[in-house]
Design a protein around this nucleic acid. Structure first.
Lengths: 335, 335
DNA sequence: CTGTTAGCGCCTTCAT
DNA sequence: ATGAAGGCGCTAACAG
């Protein structure tokens, strides 16, 4: 079922059918009607590949992200998908499992697929081969969650947010506040939040114990429990993301500690499920859905404009402290 | 950068370059070497659209699913993506929000995009316009989670699983066991599980109270709490999915009930996060990742075979009862 | 083993 | 306002 079939049935040329689709007002109303009828009767749908080949525009956006097993990215992808659909774009997601090699391959694959632009969440924008290469092509792209002065980014100020989280714990009387993070090397977000943590601790005149670095993918509840059994255990935990925070709550329970009476916990991300837990998770909530939406909007703008976005177009969205039930005043003089 | 550039640089014809890519052994080793070098030097990547147009194969799979906000689908999509990548396929996911109209549109869009096949999770296979239409095209497709005798499906026996869940509650001494479900009309899974619940109750000689139907998308904790305050409240809840189970735990807490002492709760799906909660969620775990993988494998088979899978190729994967901490023996004679 | 040729379905000048 | 013609980049006969 191609354009010629429709043309024949409508008694016009293929060129006219094409015009009727792409520039409806450049064709006489009567003719348009003919074409529409034929289209309907034959159930014709223009072939996307042919169109892409001819126009060099695919109306597809590539999306590169670490994993969907962390709801933060699933929520964001949902936002991306919705915004993309609203703008007439399909998406092709590729998951990289936080591996730089996968990022490279993903970019290569998406380039070959003729995507019109890409949204990516990479491990480390500073030293990403994939990004270098992508920028070299001149294809529009936008980073999400990542923050870097050389690239167009949609992000939140994770450092400030982390410092604020620490300040809130301090205000509750905590002095032994530890940070739990995923593999720092695998994520610039984690590093940013770590800097914020250090800044917050310094601002309060507190010593920051070494960060508790646990693998991203596995559950790591065991490792956490071990730390909570230490003699001078922390009275509060600032966790680099909500998944870690949830596991920390589990670890606390397994260690016989009650949250927040014995241990306060703050997460980061604002995944939806955090609000349905008991205790409800206190967290720095990012606008994950909107993050995706804004990334798409920025990207689509630069696609239609024909020039890639610059770092100047970067967007810093507001974060929001969600006051749940996982933080409390420090437990008497025990601190 | 196209095939002719490479051909020129390698001093061969375009056809030879094409062969070097697609049938490496149909070209002399020396020539192949030449082509590979030129390819590398120019950073050439074959154009996917041109290839698709010419071969009528896109190496893209369409995926239609309700939402990524329920981790069960995110986990499945992750499995799909991984398996697809392993077979050399990209994926284009489209979310339908449990709306039949969206399903139709998704299928139309994916058809126009020339996908080689589709994996779908629909609301109701029996009366899905989208499925009718899809089948009419002869394009290979596989349903996931859905179960229906007329379509190739990868699913688990939700009815048996639900009956087993009820039996376990009964064995713990429960007699007032209520079911919490999402909108029944929006999901054949929910209906299947409901039938299993009824069967399980009947088998135990128990009366089944009316199902607690709550909207899928919103949190619905309020509505649940109300039910738990009733004078003859249930001592156990069988929830149609884990998200509902988690919200039910929350509702129990807000009502002053302790799980599992005052109320036992069983979920359905086996989303990863359920195991990190306290109490750890007892649930009927589906192999979500493998579900996606099997769906891809079935689909790819029928693509290479050239004939759509029939209902006979359907796969029923085993479910597994995850014994968490959210179920306990009924609380004395209060039942 | 390699080159020549033709065309996948569409859009887009250029004429009319 | 419409039609004719060419080509986007690639692959699959068919020759040689």
């Amino acid at each position: 079922m191609n354009i010629h079939n429709v043309a024949a049935r409508a008694g016009v040329s293929a060129a006219t059918v094409s015009r009727a689709f792409n520039f409806p007002d450049k064709v006489a109303p009567a003719t348009r009607e003919l074409v529409e009828r034929a289209t309907r009767e034959l159930g014709y749908q223009p072939n996307a590949s042919a169109r892409t080949l001819r126009t060099q525009r695919s109306r597809v956006l590539g999306v590169v992200l670490p994993t969907l097993l962390n709801p933060v990215f699933a929520e964001c992808l949902q936002g991306i998908a919705q915004a993309a659909a609203a703008s007439g774009y399909a998406i092709v997601p590729v998951m990289t499992r936080y591996e730089e090699a996968q990022e490279q391959q993903a970019v290569a694959q998406l380039l070959a697929a003729n995507v019109d632009g890409m949204i990516l969440v990479v491990s480390s924008p500073s030293d990403s081969q994939a990004l270098q290469r992508l920028r070299g092509t001149g294809l529009p792209y936008v980073l999400a969650y990542n923050a870097h002065p050389d690239h167009p980014c949609v992000s939140v100020d994770g450092e400030a947010a982390a410092a604020e989280a620490v300040a809130r714990l301090v205000a509750l009387g905590h002095r032994r506040i530890a940070m739990v993070s995923g593999t720092l090397a695998a994520s610039d977000r984690a590093q940013q939040r770590y800097r914020g943590y250090l800044r917050g601790m310094a601002a309060a005149g507190l010593d920051a114990p070494p960060v508790l670095e646990v693998p991203f993918v596995t559950s790591a509840v065991e490792a956490l429990s071990r730390h909570l059994r230490a003699r001078a255990r922390p009275t509060a935990l600032f966790c680099s993301n909500d998944l870690l925070a949830i596991r920390s709550m589990r670890a606390a329970h397994l260690t016989g500690l009650t949250v927040p009476q014995d241990l306060s916990i703050i997460g980061f991300d604002g995944i939806a499920i955090g609000q349905d837990l008991t205790p409800a998770l206190s967290t720095i909530a990012q606008p994950n859905h909107d993050m995706g939406r804004h990334a798409v909007e920025l990207l689509v703008q630069s696609i239609v404009r024909g020039t890639p976005s610059g770092a100047g177009d970067s967007l810093c969205l507001p974060y929001q402290f969600h006051d749940g039930e996982s933080c409390g005043a420090v437990n008497g003089p025990a601190a």
